[in-house]
Simulated assay, not measured.
Amino acid sequence: MTEQTFKVGEIVTHEEMGPVVIRSEPFAWIYGRESRYVVEVSEGSRAGKHVAVISSRLSAATFERGATVLVDGERCTVKAGPFVDKFAPARPWYVVENADGSHETSAASFLTLASVDEPITVGDRVRVLEAKHAEEEHGKLGRVIRTDGTWTPIGGGLHPYRVELDDGGTIEVRRVERVADEPASTFTHDGVTYDLTASYRDRDNDMWSFTGSTNVHGRPLVSMFADRSGGRSLGSVVEAYGPLTKVTD
């Protein structure tokens, strides 16, 4: 793979330190074959300091005009930029257009490219990624029943989606991801999908099987006993004895 190169004075992004300014030509390092650069850090406790970094941890920090980006989780369009303030040369900024047609400025470090996936529509099967005041539902699966919601909790951003969860209940959601239809014989807990027809071993090597029943909240029950009596909720077992590993032999 061809090693990327940068020019002195170029503003780039370091994968951990954010925007930095290239302050040297590339140079060889005695302990590795990959070139390094001296860069000036622009943010955090190391702002203004010069450090040496390997080239593979740097990438171009520019966004094309017309690109769809995310600002605080909201989709926007880049309309102009990048612009550089002479007093903060390592912090380029852009003008972006919001969904309502208004415009604002944003530092490059706060922009990320948005996915080009088809928009979520009513009826889509999704996984909940972010829902203010319903964080315990993150990772769960459900079906979208509304996409034009207006609820905007303080500090939470617009929650346009209403999702009917597989295990019961309806919540307002800020971010989701589309998933393929999964068979009814699965259940997702804390982002992990479990096969309700399989057995699982806990960290102590004890075996657990699903009983086929649920608790009053719709969560599946698991048991250590052959007759599957004395069921406990999957969540409580994962918390006390997890992680659970599917038995495949």
Rank of each mutant, 00 (worst) to 15 (best):
G230V: 13
V216N: 09
T214H: 14
G235W: 08
A240W: 10
V247Q: 15
T193L: 00
F187A: 06
S233D: 15
L221H: 04
V222M: 12
S223A: 10
M207I: 06
R232D: 15
R232C: 15
R219A: 10
T193G: 08
D202G: 02
G242K: 05
L196W: 01
N215H: 11
T188E: 04
S223M: 08
N205V: 03
G218F: 02
S213A: 14
L221W: 05
P220I: 07
S229F: 07
G191V: 09
V192L: 00
K246C: 07
E239G: 03
M224V: 14
L244R: 05
S223P: 04
V216H: 12
P220H: 07
R201T: 06
M224P: 09
V247C: 15
P220L: 10
R203Q: 04
S199E: 04
F225P: 03
G212P: 01
G235K: 14
N205G: 00
S236A: 14
H217L: 01
R219M: 13
T193D: 05
T211R: 02
L221G: 09
F225Y: 11
D227I: 08
P220Q: 08
M207V: 09
V216P: 05
E239F: 07
S199L: 01
H217I: 02
V237L: 11
V237H: 06
G218V: 03
V238M: 10
S236N: 14
M224D: 12
F187E: 04
K246E: 11
R203K: 09
L244M: 13
D195P: 00
N205Q: 07
H217W: 03
D204R: 00
S209A: 06
V237R: 06
